[in-house]
Design a binder for these strands. Structure first.
Lengths: 142, 142
DNA sequence: GGAAAGTGTTTGTACATACAAATGAAATGC
DNA sequence: GCATTTCATTTGTATGTACAAACACTTTCC
């Protein structure tokens, strides 16, 4: 069933959620090769590309709450992909060598994801829509 | 932090999710007066406006899986807002009188929600964005 | 220098949703 | 007319995320 066949498609509530869920599905598929969920994968990417990065920083970049980041990091720690060290009130997260080895694969998945939706929507369209969507999110405030 | 300040804002994954989460927050706020979550409220609206509607139909319109609809209906049943009757393999959902009394209030909340985001984005912009977002969701298939 | 306010992180808990499998009923095929 | 497939719904279970409170450390200010 197409979203546009729904009486409720005219409501931002459903369209925004429907889009997010479908994008999520696509993303999950893209990251299957590394056996990580999209969120875990992006956290790991950040940690690899900026070793020692702090949870609060990840939280800001990924637009997820600090508690969510803690949970994501816990999982990555279980998988021996990152380690945490605490000094004082701040925590630093570092990639393990296992994670570093995985880096190229992660990048490949990220690219694949991007290419998939770009090929569906077209290049211009993709960029402008992502831009507009980010803009809307911003306007809706913190 | 604005979405646009994130390095990852250029990725559809984050922008779509960030938007959905912020819209969700706004919607939750709008439906506080009737003490229902947005999804519950929309299911209830459908049931009131189309008494006897079937879960599968609700599922299609609201773009949520059948199991999710079952859960939403269960909650509404607990709250004495709907009743279910099964004949054969099909189930019909009916509003209680309590629910019917609530109808005007529900409509008010729905309108308030719509007006809120329209006033934030502007009328044209709102419509065209909802349209584009629905379109994108459609293009992402099933 | 000690109390109060602030900051970064984690923990407890709750909710929305999905997927997969189970159920129960109807339709189809041979 | 029974076996098989299909369909609508429900149940069991898992995941992703958030909020609120707790914690641990820092900074500020008198």
């Amino acid at each position: 069933m197409k979203t546009s066949e729904s009486r409720y498609c005219k409501c931002l509530y459903f369209s925004a959620n429907a889009l997010a869920r479908k994008v999520e599905k696509l993303a999950v598929e893209s990251w299957k090769p590394v056996d990580l969920s999209p969120s875990h994968a992006y956290v790991l990417l950040m940690v690899i590309e900026e070793p020692g990065v702090q949870p609060g920083n990840i939280s800001n970049q990924l637009q997820l709450t600090p508690s969510t980041i803690t949970r994501l990091i816990e999982k990555l720690e279980e998988k021996k992909l990152v380690t945490r060290t605490s000094e004082g009130k701040i925590t630093n997260v570092y990639p393990t060598s296992k994670a570093k080895q995985l880096h190229p694969e992660l990048v490949k998945c990220a690219n694949h994801f991007g290419e998939t939706y770009t090929s569906i929507f077209g290049k211009e369209e993709s960029c402008s829509m992502v831009q507009s969507i980010s803009n809307m999110a911003d306007k809706l405030g913190v």
